[in-house]
Design a protein around this nucleic acid. Structure first.
Lengths: 229, 229
DNA sequence: GACCGTTGTCATTGCCCTGTAACACTGCAC
DNA sequence: GTGCAGTGTTACAGGGCAATGACAACGGTC
């Protein structure tokens, strides 16, 4: 049950270093030196997580991240960005592209491993059954159904995807752009305000069970799904 | 305030080079040529971090690391291992000793310094998770949330940014101008007195938990955030 | 083709947040 | 004690962001 991590990084020393640390932590490490190689590696075998260097020769890491989010095959793969010490700008742009986390170089391997585990835990949320339970709400991936306690919750397709994303990524703020990337997919263009409307619809759906306050507004930042009020 | 780094390395040329780089970076460098000397140096004065060569005459670096982890005095000291490329990688796989990072020879001094700083930063409470805890208050960057004990603290955007800055830069006085730069951003123009008002608002939000005196006024200078009254 | 559920957009509404000003207060210098 | 500079506190008006409801477009079903 080893997790497979794909490292996309052109500098060999960092690549070796990271691969070394990953193996030590009981994960399988694959690597690619540029965007092309990365896409080939992914199509060959889908990794559980991708470590992506911000600076790549040719197609930049950010661009690659966007592309991966657009493809059906790679949309669900969590991405951690490796960025050189720089501005908040980088951070913002990276998050906009639907990146799950980012680590600033130089990082200690222990820190990196900790982040990887955190992201894997978060993006799994489930024990492999595809069923996630949180604060009185239960979502069944394979069955495509939602339960509040014992009751089945009637829910539309988009609201379902939105709720699924939230339940697998709770206790964390996501901007409207991020939600669009993760829930709608990167290739569609819709207004950011549209997210508001679907948030509203999701809340309305959860209202009969008084669970609507799990969907929380963070003014100026986005939305958060939380079991705590 | 200078960090003390102990270099354990038998090759004098590397030792000197590293010591030189460390001093240039504003750190104190001590050195030892083997395990015995290292332990003596530590018992004499505990360093903030240890650079440990993998290959040492007599007791190996790995063995020394294990030993240091066992002793009360040295258990908490972060260790960075210096290893040659491909050197005993497999054996390192079984390494249980809590080494914090590895640097593969040959390395640039710049990279080494950066790694050292990263490890020191982490050992000082910033574990990279984006969560900072201080004096009964906890701020969660990714979740964009503040907790006082177990309670979630309702807080507005500007107060949140202000508190976040304070918690990541505690025990230090900042003038109103500095706070405007860091919290509001350099490109906006607002009255300096506005800071006062937001300080007031921040205190008010912390008041229910009696934490408002963490925000301290320094007459004639500015404000300081402190865990001590 | 008519019906229904779903979706994205828009205009309106409502409310929270913000900066400023005005006034009260405190502590220090003389 | 007096005066002054610096800070605390409150009120208020405006701006901005989010909530809401309505509506038209779309696609699938019968």
């Amino acid at each position: 049950m080893h997790k497979r991590i794909l490292i996309v990084e052109d500098e060999a020393s960092i690549r070796d270093m990271v691969a070394f640390a990953l193996r030590k932590a009981g994960m399988d490490a694959a690597h690619a030196a540029d965007a092309r190689a990365a896409q080939m590696a992914i199509s060959e075998r889908v990794p559980d997580l991708i470590l992506l260097d911000w600076m790549l020769p040719g197609t930049s890491g950010l661009e690659l991240a966007r592309r991966l989010r657009r493809e059906e095959l790679s949309r669900e793969i969590p991405i951690i960005m490796l960025t050189a010490r720089g501005e908040e700008m980088d951070r913002v742009n990276g998050l906009e592209a639907g990146v799950d986390d980012y680590v600033i170089k130089p990082f200690s391997t222990r820190e990196l491993i900790a982040r990887i585990k955190a992201v894997l835990r978060r993006s799994q949320g489930d024990d492999g059954s595809g069923i996630v339970e949180l604060g009185g709400l239960r979502i069944d991936g394979p069955a495509h159904r939602v339960f509040a306690g014992e009751d089945a919750v009637p829910i539309g397709p988009t609201e379902y995807r939105l709720l699924f994303f939230f339940m697998t990524h709770p206790e964390r703020v996501y901007s409207r752009a991020q939600l669009l990337d993760h829930v709608w997919g990167g290739s569609v263009y819709v207004e950011e305000r549209t997210v508001d409307v679907h948030i509203r619809r999701l809340r309305k759906t959860l209202e009969p069970w008084k669970l609507d306050d799990m969907v929380q507004t963070v003014r100026g930042a986005g939305y958060r799904f939380s079991a705590n009020t």
